[in-house]
Nucleic acid binder design. Sequence first.
DNA 1: TCCTCTGTAACGCGCGACGCGACAGCAGGT
DNA 2: ACCTGCTGTCGCGTCGCGCGTTACAGAGGA
Lengths: 98, 98
Amino acid sequence: MREHVLPGLNLSVSQAARDLVVTRQTLHRILAGNAAITTEMALRLEKFCGVSSQFWLDRQHQYELQRTKSDLASVLSRIPSRQLVDTVVRKMGASDAE
Amino acid sequence: MREHVLPGLNLSVSQAARDLVVTRQTLHRILAGNAAITTEMALRLEKFCGVSSQFWLDRQHQYELQRTKSDLASVLSRIPSRQLVDTVVRKMGASDAE
DNA sequence: TCCTCTGTAACGCGCGACGCGACAGCAGGT
DNA sequence: ACCTGCTGTCGCGTCGCGCGTTACAGAGGA
């Protein structure tokens, strides 16, 4: 991101932070990977550089998913793996294709 | 969810909570909409009833997105809406189709 | 009667994102 | 030399929120 959007817009970190109505440090934390991209930030970024908020969030969420999955491995093994019947699943609109 | 997966599995709230290795109250809060579906919970639910974690998370995230968008409306208006050049956007893999 | 389910409420903990202040280093302009 | 603005990083305090814990009260079956 620092390598793409900032030079792409020809902006400094400080200036970008001001435009995003956020502190310098906040932007730094994100650039350094020490903070996650919040729903808030995603919306700010969308308005800020025209890149879909979905893009930023999908990135973030997929990362969290990976991380949490390994953290939760021991707990997950203790959960019985049932299978909800297909008719019910489709009724919820979760037919594996969403 | 209470209307679909619980009766679909023929389980009580208490029993489901036990299976998920979570407190009753935690499940209640989710069923009542007083708590969000965490990445953790999504993974537990996936193992628990076979419904993709993506399904639960997408739901949750879209909701948050809507909510945050209106909350942030005033702030967003103060953010200059720039447009990152397409070549850079595609280089990031955010070509609007992701 | 006792047990298990149900719902709800209040308290406290821990984590994570954020703002604020302060530091030091490095340009550039007066 | 001085001031200004950028850079990165540190620590502290706050706030929101998901979660566990405890405790309440009501409904229904053995």
